[in-house]
């Protein structure tokens, strides 16, 4: 029963990691670089949601605030920096994304301070299913994550712009000779990647405490999930996020809360050494 409880907690944690990994894998698949600012986009999303929640008292509006604000910040980062470096090396883009992350963190620190902030959500009684306690808030967060994932996957697989995004990820030159305008695809990419990271940040913020550094600390598990799922594979990122979230929670009795993050690092090393293409990826990635 104890482990079943940890499993439930791990699923919610896994959805947060999966959403962050989805943002990373989309950017890697289409823009072709590891976006180290993803964690700070999550932080920005958490603070945006916190502000919207404090103003309206509604988690729903908090979520919408996180999606819109983080999507726009992500788009701004593309327009101001990544677009101008598009022809540069992966390392140049990676370093630029680290710089954007530092900048975002500093701005959030100046505006909101470095103290811990929390979402003031009402206390509720847990539902009990066969002895397993599930908090209503966790169910709501799982529903939000499921809705966000459904929207992103619908966009990717059912809409023309989603097909174009997948085509650019598959073969950029062929996409261009198919008449696809890369700039339009990039705008869609950065809006979606930012929005997804924003939702992940809001979820993490509600589950824990919000500080300007908390998203940065999620970067390792998120990258691990992106790699485990097969870099460039959206389905893989979400599945691997769930696996990692559950694995981290189940490891807590053995390694303690503080060191469960180390599990992500061990899994990432093992995947890189034993199956670099991950669970769902192809050798060249970016699918």
């Amino acid at each position: 029963m104890f482990y079943a409880q940890l499993l439930v907690n791990g699923i919610v944690q896994g959805l947060v990691i999966g959403l962050a990994a989805l943002s990373i894998t989309l950017v890697f698949g289409i823009a072709r670089f590891p976006n180290a600012a993803t964690g700070d986009f999550m932080t920005f999303g958490a603070f945006s949601a916190l502000t919207a929640h404090q103003a309206t008292g509604s988690i729903l509006f908090g979520g919408l605030g996180a999606i819109v604000a983080t999507g726009l910040v992500s788009l701004l980062a593309y327009w101001a920096v990544f677009r101008r470096l598009a022809d540069r090396s992966v390392v140049a883009l990676l370093v630029a994304s680290i710089g954007i992350g530092f900048l975002l963190r500093a701005v959030l620190g100046v505006v909101f301070g470095h103290g811990q902030q929390v979402f003031q959500v009402p206390l509720t009684r847990p539902y009990v299913f066969n002895g397993i306690r599930v908090m209503p808030l966790d169910l709501q967060l799982a529903a939000v994550a499921a809705l966000a994932l459904a929207l992103v996957f619908s966009l990717l697989y059912l809409t023309p712009i989603g097909r174009q995004m997948r085509a650019v990820a598959d073969n950029r030159d062929l996409a261009r000779v198919s008449g696809i305008r890369p700039g339009r695809v990039m705008v869609a990419l950065w809006l979606v990647a930012g929005g997804v990271a924003g939702v992940a940040g809001m979820m993490l913020g509600i589950k824990t405490i919000v500080t300007p550094e908390f998203g940065w600390e999620m970067l390792l598990p998120a990258f691990t999930a992106a790699i485990l799922g097969g870099i460039g594979s959206p389905v893989g990122a979400v599945a691997a996020g769930l696996i990692l979230g559950v694995a981290q929670e189940l490891s807590t009795p053995f390694v303690g809360f503080t060191y469960k993050i180390a599990l992500a690092f061990i899994i990432m090393l093992a995947v890189l050494l034993l199956r670099p293409r991950g669970l769902f990826g192809q050798l060249e990635g970016a699918r």
């Binding site: 097909r163 997948r166 990820a169 073969n171 030159d173 062929l174 996409a175 008449g179 699918r287």
Partner: peptide, 27 residues
């Protein structure tokens, strides 16, 4: 858009998309 079609020597289809999507994706 001006009326030129191009078939590259290699990597001439989107391998991860379905046949139908390969056609639908053309703008």
């Amino acid at each position: 858009a001006r009326g030129i079609g191009y078939v590259p020597q290699v990597s001439n289809v989107f391998g991860s998309l379905s046949i139908l999507e390969n056609l639908q994706v053309v703008v």
